[in-house]
Amino acid sequence: MTPPTTFVRKRKRPAGCGLWPTYQLGTDDYGTWLFTPRHSLHRGNDGSFCEVAQTSPGGPGEDALHLVPRDGWWFATWRPRGLLVADVSTPPVLIDNEWTYVDLELDPYRRRDGSIGTEDWDDLAEAHRNGLIDDTEHEAAVAASRTLEHHFTHAIEPFGPQGWTRLADAIALGLPPLTAFGDQPVDVL
């Protein structure tokens, strides 16, 4: 049986967003698990399309497992080539059939070689300086990044074997790419 689908909308300040469809795999104590098969499409707020994997670390032709946390300032993604990365963000919110979050710039990662860190500290500082990220969001972003780096370093679940097992199980389902957006608006103010 094919899982139901939903959408993810990643917003950027002051303007811009990306939208992509995903399969809903289920919810557990960690949050809601979503899966985007390779060759699925991402739509930018300008109406352009590309493969989902082209919009984040990884590359075209990659599957992606996502976790929307039950309670957290992030949105995590596992890639088959061994990359685990999170968008530090406002807590994702489900509105109708769409998970929405605002990207707060920081991107904690764990690469295949075991290196762990966070990218885009300069982007966070600039967005904070320009008033695009307020003091509360800035503090939450820094705390979320540090917590995620700690969890990645110590393989604290779901960032240990659990996420990788879920990714392998999702790929084994053989689900087709998601390329339809129906009447989902490109951008919502």
Results as ranks from 00 to 15, higher is better:
residue 113 D to R: 07
residue 66 H to E: 07
residue 97 N to K: 07
residue 19 L to F: 00
residue 29 D to C: 04
residue 84 L to T: 01
residue 95 I to A: 07
residue 22 T to F: 01
residue 30 Y to C: 07
residue 86 A to V: 06
residue 8 V to M: 02
residue 78 W to F: 14
residue 173 L to V: 09
residue 85 V to N: 02
residue 4 P to V: 13
residue 136 T to E: 09
residue 136 T to M: 05
residue 188 V to W: 13
residue 68 V to K: 00
residue 134 D to L: 06
residue 128 H to F: 10
residue 127 A to T: 01
residue 34 L to C: 10
residue 129 R to L: 01
residue 78 W to S: 11
residue 99 W to D: 04
residue 14 P to M: 09
residue 176 P to T: 04
residue 35 F to E: 02
residue 48 S to K: 05
residue 112 R to M: 11
residue 114 G to C: 11
residue 127 A to C: 12
residue 7 F to A: 02
residue 71 D to I: 02
residue 164 W to Y: 07
residue 100 T to L: 11
residue 119 E to S: 14
residue 183 D to E: 14
residue 102 V to C: 04
residue 95 I to S: 09
residue 143 A to F: 01
residue 44 G to Y: 08
residue 122 D to T: 13
residue 46 D to M: 11
residue 118 T to R: 11
residue 134 D to N: 15
residue 68 V to P: 02
residue 133 I to A: 01
residue 127 A to W: 00
residue 101 Y to A: 02
residue 3 P to C: 12
residue 92 P to Q: 06
residue 102 V to F: 03
residue 60 P to N: 04
residue 156 I to R: 13
residue 16 G to L: 03
residue 161 P to T: 12
residue 120 D to F: 15
residue 60 P to H: 04
residue 113 D to L: 11
residue 122 D to E: 15
residue 23 Y to S: 05
residue 152 F to V: 07
residue 14 P to G: 10
residue 113 D to E: 09
residue 77 T to P: 00
residue 45 N to H: 12
residue 49 F to T: 09
residue 40 S to A: 03
residue 180 A to L: 05
residue 119 E to Y: 14
residue 133 I to W: 00
residue 157 E to R: 03
residue 141 A to H: 10
residue 152 F to W: 03
residue 38 R to S: 09
residue 146 R to H: 15
residue 81 R to T: 14
residue 171 I to N: 02
residue 29 D to Q: 13
residue 83 L to K: 06
residue 43 R to D: 02
residue 111 R to V: 07
residue 81 R to S: 13
residue 56 S to Q: 10
residue 124 L to A: 12
residue 115 S to G: 08
residue 157 E to I: 05
residue 20 W to E: 02
residue 128 H to V: 05
residue 148 L to V: 04
residue 113 D to Q: 11
residue 32 T to C: 04
residue 60 P to Y: 03
residue 8 V to A: 00
residue 109 Y to K: 09
residue 131 G to L: 03
residue 10 K to V: 06
residue 17 C to R: 11
residue 2 T to N: 11
residue 5 T to F: 00
residue 8 V to C: 03
residue 63 D to L: 06
residue 169 D to M: 09
residue 109 Y to M: 14
residue 122 D to Y: 13
residue 146 R to V: 14
residue 130 N to L: 13
residue 108 P to F: 00
residue 124 L to I: 12
residue 119 E to L: 15
residue 125 A to D: 15
residue 145 S to W: 08
residue 128 H to Q: 12
residue 86 A to G: 08
residue 80 P to L: 14
residue 16 G to W: 03
residue 175 L to S: 12
residue 124 L to F: 12
residue 91 P to K: 06
residue 145 S to P: 04
residue 164 W to G: 04
residue 189 L to M: 10
residue 56 S to L: 11
residue 168 A to W: 01
residue 69 P to W: 08
residue 60 P to K: 14
residue 114 G to W: 09
residue 17 C to Y: 06
residue 131 G to Q: 07
residue 133 I to S: 00
residue 9 R to T: 13
residue 52 V to T: 05
residue 146 R to G: 12
residue 16 G to P: 01
residue 62 E to P: 09
residue 60 P to T: 08
residue 137 E to H: 08
residue 124 L to V: 13
residue 89 S to L: 03
residue 81 R to Y: 10
residue 61 G to R: 03
residue 175 L to Y: 11
residue 9 R to A: 08
residue 114 G to I: 12
residue 101 Y to H: 15
